[in-house]
Structures are given as C-alpha cells and as structure tokens.
Amino acid sequence: MSGELLQISGLRAGYGRIEVLRGINLSVKKGEKVVILGPSGSGKSTLLKCIPYLVRPWSGEIRINGLVVNPDPATLRRIRASTGFVFQQYNLFPHMTVIRNVALPLELGKGMSRREAEKIAQSILDVLGLGELAEKFPLELSGGQQQRAAIARALAIDPKLLLLDEPTSALDPELRYEVVETLYQVAKQGRAMLIVTHELDFAEAAADRVVFIDEGLIVEEGDAKEVLERPKKERTEKFLRRLRSRL
C-alpha cells in the first residue's frame, strides 16, 4: 500500500437541498500536514466534518488507512478512533473537569479504567503545558487554554489523523499565539494533520501542502511555500492578498 492515510474521491455533501461540496478529491499521507484555506462559506468545515461522518456525505468515497468510511456503527467507531477533531469553538464538556474531558474517551472507547485513563490524560496535559489546569472546569479557563485542552482531548485516543477546524479563529489575537505554539508542538509529533486555518505563518512553516477551496471545489493545491508565495490561480492570489491586508 502507498503511504496514503486519507483518500477522498468525488466527495459531494450539503445541507437539505443545498450542495456545499461539489466533488472533492484529496489525499493526505501518513504524517503529512495539510492546510486548507478558503473564503467563508466555501465548505471547509463541511469537508472536515465529512471525514469522520459528523456530516454525512451525499456521494463519493472516503478511505482512512484503506478502510472505506460507511455508516455502519462498528466502522464508524474504528474511523473515529483513528481521527481526532478539534472544533473552532472548542466544544469541551462544561460539566467535567479538564482531565475528565481528556480521560473519558479513553475509558469509553478503549475500555481503560479510570486510573489508567487519567494517568495518560495527565501526561498529555503535562506535555501541552496544561498540567496545572487538570482539575479546573472548562469555563473557568481562557479561550486559548480551552482550545489547548480540546487539542489534548483529541490527542488522547492517539489518532493517526488530527482534523482541526479553525482552531484559533474564535480567539482574540493575543490568545492565538499560545494555541499556535501548541499546534507547532503537535505538528512535530509526526501525526498527520488536516487543518483549516488562516494562520499563514503556521501554514508556511509547518505545512507540507496547502489546499485552496472555493465554492465547494478545490481550486488549487500544492507545496505550501509554492501556493502561498506563487499561487497559480487568480482566485487564490486574490484571497491571499485580502487575507494578508487584514492582518
């Protein structure tokens, strides 16, 4: 088998009658970091959510590690055990402490005891510099801390592919930095990442590839530096120019 971890072909999806993704082909290799860029409403979140079937595709095929994603519960469990998802709004469970948030998926998904799970959870929190916050509740933390805790939670099950949907865009500029630092740290761990983000510095420094999406189609994709510095398509160029002028 090739080094492909994720293979998406002919993916179409939408809400009600509105088609949002109009035929996406995309693959991610083991350990590869891919950044997705695109204007608001272009379907970036929908694309990410289709991968672990949080949004059900209309047609097309998604393969993770050779396994074709389908709605069968056993398959979905395996797929979701190999993908971690980080949401724009963190979506931590507010009624549980940070460490419970991180440990629970291990207990439920991997059948670990509470002690085992919390030991692993604590070590992940320690690595991400959140060790001190383990016993706090999510809403007692700053947005940046919440998002880092959410990243820890997604990492707990040791997914092969980490999906991140604009992990910094809900944060005030001064809080983004700490999350971006965490992203760099995670990127170094060798795990494949598919990230929707407009942090161009991060994309340039950490991504292998950049994919530009508009109106539900991939407009351009290629080596991160190539696309960011010398985009071939006019739409990509315009988008990047507008993004940079906003910063």
Partner: peptide, 20 residues
C-alpha cells in the same frame, strides 16, 4: 456542538446521552 464533540470522540448515542 456537544453531540458533535461526543460523536467525534467515538461515543455511541447511548454514551453521549448518558455522559454528556
């Protein structure tokens, strides 16, 4: 979003309601 987060972590529907 709470349902989505639970699902993304591989929880079953029953687990999602029970724990989340």
């Amino acid at each position: 979003e709470q349902y989505l987060a639970a699902e993304s972590l591989g929880m079953t529907t029953v687990q999602t309601y029970r724990f989340i």
